[in-house]
Design a protein around this nucleic acid. Structure first.
Length: 426
DNA sequence: TCTGGGGTCCTAGGACCC
DNA sequence: TCTGGGGTCCTAGGACCC
């Protein structure tokens, strides 16, 4: 058996953990710039607020229904996430887990044959709830895909599973679940595939199992074959061991569109420097750096422009100075005058461990010289706060908005150290 | 007026090899 | 008019995830 533990309405639940008065009220958490809805309480879902909804379109609904609206506090969510993981991990042997996202982790319960797993999972939930005031669900099944479905069922039928734990351990339970589950709710079926499935008469997960394997292979590729095996209870997806990232991206939409070249250049350089910091944190150097800039895709009438480009570095690097320099080179090449830019980003990829850098004989290598300085800056910033020491190119101001911090949150920040998380998704 | 910010994996097709 | 038969590796883009 595998188990999937996930936090219900995670960001909203974190807000409630900090401020219990929010319990039972409709609550939403917005993205940067207060742009989209990225977390909703059950009450907010019941009001018909969709995931990812643009906040401005629902402003009226928020006011009328007294919905509590929050700007995101990602440091806090990361902190809570790590605490949840810490508790959950303590219930399984070493490495018998996979942190899948900021609010989800898989547990491996193979070898727990003589345990009452149901009671055991209730205990995990209870500890998280007492220690952190966070609600969770735990779905158990023979495969990861079925675990996802088990969790889906808990959330859809809360009355039936008041303890928040469901074990899908028989052929009958699985069959019933697959017959009731809409195909687009399956883990791995997105919008495109969902449409294709429905066009071909596949409406429920169960219908996919009735299709010939050749058809599944042709329409979905290798993933489709894996999916149907997982439905049948034959595990195709193992627990991934925690690994360092393979690419790192820093990008932002701007609160106000930017038409000044220097201002945009400064943003791009800053993003490159953040990439470098994240690289050093995982002791990697990158071989490739990419930069993109784009206008507002929702305001096409203002003129549209979108361009990005990558270059291979002469030597693998994690130096803020080197990466900022090359990011700027790319920026100069792709920047076009006369547009109002809404978003920009820097991505680094193609990593090598920083102790295995192969230096190009014919190119100057600045990293060796920069890294001791960089490490010192990292240490100082860890101690005194983000961006307290920064390079000359950085203005140090954010160009995306955030509401004023609440007193509770200020208090929270003061009383907790908030290490950066290392998740595959955030 | 106002629409997030990350990530991973797979596939097809091109370039190149003999 | 006719124009081989394999391979490998890389890349861009698509689709998915939270």
């Amino acid at each position: 058996m595998y188990a999937l533990l996930d936090c219900n309405n995670f960001f909203v639940s974190c807000e409630r953990a900090l401020k219990p008065e929010l319990d039972d009220k409709p609550v939403v958490v917005l993205s940067n710039n207060d742009g989209c809805v990225i977390s909703r309480s059950n009450e907010a879902k019941a009001l018909g607020v969709p995931m990812g909804a643009p906040a401005f379109k629902f402003k009226n609904l928020f006011v009328v229904n007294d919905v509590q609206v929050f700007s995101p506090k990602f440091e806090m969510y990361n902190y809570y996430s790590q605490e949840v993981m810490k508790i959950a991990k303590s219930y399984v042997p070493q490495n018998a887990f996979e942190v899948y996202s900021i609010d989800e982790l898989f547990l491996d319960f193979h070898g727990f044959k003589y345990f009452n797993i149901y009671d055991y999972c209730c205990k995990i939930r209870k500890e998280i709830n007492i220690e952190l005031k966070l609600p969770t669900s735990i779905g158990l099944a023979p495969t990861k895909t079925l675990c996802k479905i088990a969790n889906h069922i808990i959330k859809k039928e809360t009355d039936k599973y008041p303890k928040g734990v469901y074990i899908m351990d028989s052929k009958e339970k699985i069959e019933t679940a697959l017959k009731e589950l809409d195909i687009q709710d399956v883990w791995g079926i997105g919008r495109k595939l969902g449409t294709k499935m429905r066009d071909n008469g596949v409406h429920k997960a169960w219908d996919l199992l009735q299709k010939p394997e050749t058809w599944v292979r042709k329409t979905m590729g290798i993933q489709g074959i894996r999916m149907i095996n997982e439905f049948k209870g034959i595990p195709q997806l193992e627990l991934d061991s925690p690994s360092d990232k393979k690419s790192i991206m820093v990008s932002r939409s701007f609160m106000k569109m930017i038409s000044n070249k220097d201002e945009l250049a400064e943003r791009v350089e800053t993003f490159a420097i953040y990439c470098a910091e994240k690289l050093r944190k995982q002791n990697s150097c990158c071989k490739v750096i990419s930069v993109f800039i784009q206008t507002n895709r929702f305001r096409k009438e203002l003129g549209e422009y979108k361009e990005g480009f990558s270059i291979v570095l002469p030597n693998p690097s994690s130096s803020s100075i080197v990466l900022a320099k090359f990011a700027n080179t790319i920026f100069e090449a792709i920047y076009k005058e006369g547009f109002r830019y809404k978003k920009a980003g820097v991505m680094v990829s193609d990593f090598v461990p920083d102790n295995e850098r192969l230096i190009n004989l014919f190119e100057k290598d600045d990293d060796a010289k920069h890294i001791p300085i960089m490490k010192a800056i990292d240490k100082l910033n860890l101690k005194y706060g983000k961006d307290k020491i920064r390079l000359g190119g950085m203005s140090g101001k954010n160009t995306y908005g955030r509401a004023t911090l609440s007193p509770e949150y200020e208090e929270f920040l003061k009383s907790n150290t908030l290490p950066e998380a290392n998740y595959r998704f955030q």
